[in-house]
Amino acid sequence: MTFNPPRYEWTSSNAQEALNILEAAEKLIESHLVTLAPGNGLVRMEQRRRTPLPLTLSIDLTSLVDAINEVAALRDVADLPDLDADN
């Protein structure tokens, strides 16, 4: 039996989708590792170290950082305390 390697490319438009994609990618890799080394977790851990798996990840946090800066600016203008500050 021959297995043709699939290639995946996902795109997200918000933080929740990005997190879902990262989780899906992790599960996809794990499922293939189980196929490569079924049963024994120690063998599978060794396979993780030895098996090449090219991965390119590009994350643009610009919108998230812009939102953080906007909230910080609004907090400064309103003179509100930081959410994590001790009272």
Rank of each mutant, 00 (worst) to 15 (best):
T56L: 05
P6H: 08
L74A: 04
P5W: 02
S58A: 08
V43M: 15
E26Y: 14
L36D: 05
H32A: 13
P81Y: 05
Q16C: 07
L53F: 10
L33Q: 06
I59C: 01
D76V: 09
G41W: 10
L64G: 04
L42H: 03
A24M: 02
D79E: 15
S12D: 03
N69L: 08
A72Y: 06
A25I: 09
T11S: 13
H32P: 07
R7A: 03
R75F: 00
A24E: 01
E30I: 11
R75G: 01
T51S: 02
N20C: 04
V43G: 08
L22I: 06
L55F: 00
L53I: 01
E46Q: 07
V71C: 07
A85W: 07
V65S: 10
A25W: 13
E70P: 00
N40D: 15
A78L: 01
T51M: 04
A67L: 05
G41R: 15
M45G: 07
Y8P: 01
D86H: 05
V34D: 14
E26K: 09
P6Y: 07
R50G: 14
E9G: 10
E46H: 03
T51V: 07
H32G: 11
N40Y: 06
N14H: 12
L36N: 06
A18M: 07
D76A: 14
W10K: 11
P81M: 12
A85I: 09
L61W: 07
R50Q: 12
D76Y: 12
E46Y: 03
E23G: 10
L83E: 15
S63L: 12
P6T: 08
A15Y: 12
W10A: 15
A67H: 07
N87P: 14
I29Q: 08
G39E: 00
R44G: 02
A67W: 06
L36W: 04
L57N: 02
R48E: 06
S31I: 10
